[in-house]
Design a protein around this nucleic acid. Structure first.
Length: 885
RNA sequence: GCGAAAGUGGCGGAAUUGGCAGACGCGCUGGACUUAGGAUCCAGUGGCCCAAAGCCGUGCGGGUUCGAGUCCCGCCUUUCGCACCA
């Protein structure tokens, strides 16, 4: 409700008030001001190159990796979550004694850079480099440690030449091929558009109607790896189930059969794929995709041929979405096929709902049991037959059916199906498959939804595909010695007429490496997912100009121990990376088949934005929002606004930039708040007031340290009046809890545990405790445990305590189990399951002592007096439940 | 339509194997220090009730159990993914 207050008024209060520090200056204690502290430690970490790893040095390696980002420009606090989380883990594993590698690079090719060039006349390279500089500075301001000596950017020739090398390796192994594929084509811009660039069937940029066009494109044959990609998901035990499921669905493995149907008019059979061969007695017609190669022959003599052809053309020009929205449509070819089991002549139709890309592009239609076939049959008056029913049930009459009779029950049985009649579905499938194979008309078949990976992009800002077209020799790969094929930098960006590369004769014209004749270069560039499918290997030896990577070292450092990134990459990036890793394995370059041992997807950070119902529900900039009576209204018009929580984006005006926040509270506060806000895999709503909690916590940690230093200087003598045992016990309990939770990514509860420890030390001090040795022990432990989250303040206090080494290189504390034990245990006492009292017994709790205490507890006795205790339940160390009648 | 996940105070969230629901923090209320407070510190804060005692309380309805936020069955809601894949 008051959420916009901070943004609206922040300039007025952005400076830390000088009065604020009065309380402490009067006691000559330093006030916590993160500004100087943070830049000081960032500088020291950089100077000492603390994050640089010698990959040949021995040690227990830990490869930690955040998905390398696209350098789009400024980062907001939502992006920060991802990197802060990674940095916290990195520091933790390091303090635990691992040799931790945490590299960073840039997924630097891609469309936005090119669009910026067209719009603003800046070269994509210049735009990209500028953004990289800003993002790098932002990472440093957040206190994030990366091994910058291993930085790489995919747009540099020394990186993308290995993309080209990899392409050629795949080409040699038959895994890169050229084929025709339908693409979204904008006729006025003369360019191919990605699906996201097509809005309501029109070009996002110029508004022209997009058409489907068949173009020659390069593909990677990922389908060859479909079964391996599916099967080895099982071994990825430390991946989120959700991601594995998404990948599984995407691969879409299904087991069925290919069956040939004789077509007299064709002179050869029509092959179909079905997952339910047991329903073949119910196949009353066939449907082919309009693009099916046999269509021309089938309709050659059809009197309606020209009408059918026009219809086919129309369907081909539709986008996938339009095609689906059109509903089911078809045309009769005029020909029939013979159902190999019923021996009936069944009509062959063309249907817009049958896809050429899946299976064989033709189906046997079983309208009795498939909803799609049913709808088609009803629409065109085709016959329907029921051949499977649940055990003991009668089949419905086709005329009465409102929908297909889909029976998934395994105990369902086949009916009116010849030799398989009476068999339960699994048996029926088995038997019919045997018959199909014996008769030689088909066989068991596994098929995948996964399609080959189309890597061609008709774009400038990407890796040139290293291929040359020669009139004499055909397709000729660029020889290794001529790599890299570099992008010419001085090309004009008009935004029209497609790829600037194709317009540049210096780039296009070359000579054939085989025969020396004049030849043309391929002008398509690679999908940027190629760049990101192997970069994690390159980080080990990023500057090697003789090979893609060093197999020995890569085998030592990979697979990546912890990979962190957004769920948006659950399918494509991770699938492509897994695929490329398997090809590298097959080439003998690596010894592992899966690149990422443990995967973590952080949740997005959301924030409310405001819409104006009187202005078409458009988003309102924060500067135009004010609060009246607790309700957001638009300045000027006074219109009441609707708050809507969503992902941070410029168009919603709900982005929180970190600069202002860091200036006011420091990066440590942002880091602590970001990890405290919610479990890291969960969506979290950013709240400007919530930040205060983290700020106060760090302020208390600071002040505790100052008090400790003061106490040490004062050399307070005299007998201790308060025992530090409680504090020390809390310290050991905290070490134990925090360590376990760090491994489980429960950062929000780690921070709450640290707040409790800090409060416990505070309690000791305010009770008059002044044992500086024990306090130093507890406080230093707090600093170490807090270091992954608040690295700057902890380094500062650590050094003020007199430590010369960085806290980063100190070792993670270890809990003493004996010192964790409480002297007394509180046991809850229930009567008939309701809490009626508590008793305290000395630790460790002994059952007899507990019941003795219960017996002398007045409150509990009141509840059981006059009643008979029929059962006593004791949960050791926790609870007693008395069951009474 | 299919698949998955999640529903706990005013808010973010906590609660190893079923065992004291609401840790920690925000906000709010009261107080302290103050010319001032949107700084800092202290106390309180699930609901009903003046208070205590007590009762109620983890989306809804059942069930298992001495005992259910947690397990089982049936609903509802929200979010995400896939979506003519034969």
């Amino acid at each position: 409700m008051l959420r916009i207050r901070y943004s609206v008024l922040s300039t007025q209060y952005s400076a830390l008030s000088t009065q604020h520090s009065l309380r402490y200056t009067s006691r000559s204690v330093m006030q916590y001001d993160p500004r100087d502290i943070e830049s000081k430690w960032q500088q020291r970490w950089a100077e000492e190159r603390v994050a640089e790893v010698d990959v040949t040095a021995p040690g227990d390696k830990f490869y930690m990796l955040n998905m390398f980002p696209y350098p789009s420009g400024d980062l907001h606090v939502g992006h920060g979550r991802n990197y802060i989380l990674g940095d916290a883990l990195y520091r933790f594993f390091r303090m635990q004694g691992r040799v931790a590698l945490n590299p960073m690079g840039w997924d630097a090719f891609g469309l936005p850079a090119e669009n910026a060039a067209i719009k603003r006349g800046i070269h994509p390279r210049e735009w990209t480099v500028g953004n990289i500089g800003r993002m790098k500075a932002q990472f440093k301001r957040w206190g994030i440690l990366y091994d910058w000596s291993k930085e790489l950017a995919s747009c540099n020739p020394d990186y993308y030449r290995w993309n080209q090398w990899l392409f050629l390796m795949l080409y040699k192994r038959g895994l890169a091929y050229r084929g025709k594929a339908p693409v979204n084509w904008c006729p006025s811009d003369h360019t191919v558009l990605a699906n996201e660039q097509v809005v309501d069937g029109r070009c996002e940029r110029c508004g022209s109607e997009v058409v489907q066009k068949e173009l020659e494109q390069w593909f990677f044959k990922i389908t060859d790896y479909a079964d391996r990609l599916d099967e080895s998901l099982d071994g990825l035990e430390e991946w989120p189930e959700k991601v594995k499921l998404m990948q599984r669905n995407w691969i879409g493995r299904s087991v069925g059969a290919d069956v040939d149907f004789e077509v007299p008019a064709l002179g050869k059979p029509l092959r179909i794929f079905t997952t339910r061969p047991d329903t073949i007695y119910g196949a009353t017609f066939m449907v082919m995709a309009p693009e099916h190669p046999a269509v021309a022959t089938l309709i050659a003599d059809n009197p309606q041929r020209s009408e059918i052809e026009a219809w086919i053309e129309g369907v081909k020009n539709q986008s996938a979405l339009e095609r689906q929205e059109a509903g089911k449509e078809g045309r009769f070819t005029g020909r029939t096929a013979i159902n190999p089991f019923t021996n009936e002549h069944i009509p062959i139709w063309l249907g817009n709902f049958v896809l050429m890309q899946y299976g064989t592009g033709a189906i046997m239609a079983v309208p009795g049991h498939d909803q799609r076939d049913f709808e088609f049959a009803r629409q065109y008056g085709l016959s329907i037959r029921v051949v499977v029913t649940p055990q003991g049930e009668r089949a419905p009459a086709p005329a009465d059916m409102a929908e297909a009779f889909v029976v998934k029950d395994e105990s369902a049985v086949s009916v009116e199906s010849g030799s398989i009649s009476g068999l339960a579905t699994p048996k029926a499938i088995e038997k019919i498959l045997d018959e199909i194979e014996q008769r030689g008309i088909g066989r068991k078949m596994v098929r995948y939804r996964l399609r080959d990976w189309l890597i061609s992009r008709q774009r400038y800002w990407g890796t040139p595909i290293p291929i040359i077209y020669c009139d004499h020799c055909g397709i000729v790969p660029v020889p290794d010695s001529q790599l890299p094929v570099t992008l010419p930098l001085d090309v004009p960006f008009t935004g029209r007429e497609g790829n600037p590369l194709a317009k540049d004769p210096r780039f296009v014209n070359t000579t054939c490496p085989r025969c020396g004749a004049a030849a043309r270069r391929e002008t398509d560039t690679m999908d940027t997912f190629v760049d990101s499918s192997w970069y994690y290997c390159r980080f080990i030896t990023p500057h090697d100009d003789r090979k893609i990577f060093d197999s020995y070292l890569v085998n030592r450092w990979l697979p990546v121990d912890q990979y962190i990134g957004g769920i948006e990459h659950a399918i494509l990036h991770l699938l492509y990376a897994r695929f490329i890793t398997k090809t590298l394995f097959d080439m003998g370059l690596v010894e592992f088949e899966e690149p990422f041992t443990r995967l973590f997807n952080q949740g997005v950070i959301t924030k409310e934005g405001y819409r104006d119902p009187n202005d078409n529900f458009s988003w309102v900039p924060l500067g135009e929002v004010e609060l009246r009576g607790g309700k957001p209204v638009r300045k000027g018009s006074g219109a009441e606004l609707m708050a809507e929580v969503g992902k941070m984006s410029k168009s919603r005006f709900n982005v929180v930039p970190p600069d202002e926040l860091i200036e006011r509270y420091g990066a440590d506060t942002e880091r602590v708040y970001t990890l405290f806000i919610a479990p890291p895999d969960q969506e979290a709503a950013w709240s400007d007031e919530g930040v205060i909690g983290a700020w106060r916590f760090l302020g208390r940690v600071w002040n505790l340290g100052q008090e400790l230093l003061e106490m040490r200087n004062a050399h307070q003598a005299g007998a201790a009046t308060v025992s530090p045992d409680r504090m020390i016990r809390k310290m050991h309990q905290t070490i134990d809890a925090v360590t376990a939770r760090m491994h489980r990514f429960q950062f929000n509860t780690v921070i709450s545990a640290l707040m409790e420890l800090s409060n416990s030390i505070g309690d000791y001090v305010s009770a008059g405790g002044h044992d500086t040795v024990r306090m130093t022990e507890a406080y230093s432990t707090l600093l170490k445990l807090l270091h992954p989250f608040a690295p700057h303040i902890t380094e500062e206090m650590w050094s003020l305590l007199g430590n010369r080494e960085l806290i980063l290189v100190s070792s993670w504390p270890v809990a003493d189990l004996a010192l964790m034990q409480e002297d007394a245990v509180t046991i809850a006492v229930q009567v008939n399951g309701k809490l009626r009292g508590q008793v305290e017994v000395p630790a460790p709790p002994v059952e007899e002592a507990v019941f003795a205490a219960v017996g002398s507890n007045d409150k509990v006795q009141q509840w059981i007096s006059g009643k008979q205790v029929v059962k006593k339940i004791y949960v050791p160390g926790k609870l007693v439940n008395l069951v009474v009648k």
